[in-house]
């Protein structure tokens, strides 16, 4: 019984990693740019589709296909440079409307280019077997995803806390005006952070490819969950996003076992409770 529960938890944690990759970018972008990017789920979707196309072009080699991800960077760069940048000084409603417009555009473009049907490529060679965990067969690919997620977390932490560039990002997040008055090219930094965040979501999408079928609209599904993760963890807090992604992954994994009827609602209930008791999130900073 205990083994079964632990095993189920492991499944939940590996699923949580996709959510973490999307939420990490969302939280990073909000923390620095102060923009809530509705279209962030679209980068997850585009990451999956671009990789799918590359997969076919490279004869099914998944690792080579990941080379398509810089395409996400180009799309994100264009979106920030030519559109988002012009609404930073406006009310938050304009930012939400603009990014929502991008959700619609990206969805329809995806339908145009890749068609409306579900598509699912096979698991990459080398990771398409199972290993024995707690006496049960566990997909090696899920372990790989867990490793990637944790490595990304450590990498992001090192980037932000231990590099000069990370320091500039943190300074701009704390006080944009003073950062600018010290000579930090804030607009350029914003673009870079937006592209990095989009790339994280795109990577999540690409890595989800062998496990989840892709379809237009997959971005909306993940962005809602990612919003919950970010709100529960605290807007702008990466530690909060990581831990709350794990929490929500476990909630899904155990919810489906113990409360199958309510499983879909559990994350929303968690968010409602957090918003009532700690509106700034579990790891967020209370403002004002």
């Amino acid at each position: 019984m205990i083994e079964a529960l632990l095993f189920q938890g492991l499944v939940g944690l590996s699923e949580a990693m996709y959510l973490w990759m999307v939420a990490a970018g969302l939280s990073l972008i909000f923390g620095v740019l102060r923009v809530l990017n509705f279209a962030h789920g679209s980068f997850y979707m585009l990451g999956a589709y671009l990789t799918l196309t590359a997969l076919r072009a490279f004869g099914g080699n998944f690792w080579l296909a990941l080379a398509a991800l810089p395409g996400i960077c180009v799309i994100a760069w264009g979106m920030e440079r030519f559109f988002l940048r012009h609404v930073y000084h406006l009310e938050v409603a304009y930012q939400l409307l603009l990014t929502f417009a991008f959700v619609l555009i990206f969805d329809d473009l995806t339908r145009l280019v890749w068609g409306p049907v579900y598509q699912a490529p096979p698991t990459p060679r080398g990771l398409d077997r199972a290993v024995s965990v707690l006496g049960r067969p566990f997909p090696l690919y899920n372990l790989f995803i867990l490793g990637v997620g944790v490595a990304l977390g450590v990498g992001l932490w090192l980037l932000l806390e231990r590099t000069r560039w990370g320091r500039l990002i943190r300074a701009a997040a704390m006080d944009r005006e003073m950062a600018s008055a010290l000579g930090i090219r804030v607009p350029r930094l914003y673009t870079a952070v937006f592209v990095l965040g989009a790339l994280l979501a795109g990577l999540g999408g690409a890595l989800s490819l062998p496990i989840h079928a892709v379809s237009p609209g997959m971005g909306e599904l993940i962005i809602i969950e990612a919003f919950i993760v970010v709100v529960v963890g605290g807007l702008g807090s990466l530690t909060g996003a990581f831990l709350s992604a794990l929490l929500i992954g476990l909630l899904h994994a155990y919810g489906i076992v113990f409360l199958p009827v309510f499983e879909m609602a559990l994350a929303f209930i968690l968010m409602a409770v957090v918003l009532i008791l700690r509106p700034w999130g579990l790891f967020g900073v209370r403002e004002g």
Partner: peptide
């Protein structure tokens, strides 16, 4: 000009409310 270009031209600014980055150390 944007502030960062003015700063790079060699103008240092000490605001009245100090505007120290609270989560960075003195050295940082």
């Amino acid at each position: 000009w944007p502030p960062y270009e003015v700063a790079r031209l060699g103008i240092g600014f000490v605001p009245d409310d100090r505007r120290i980055f609270p989560h960075l150390t003195t050295r940082e």
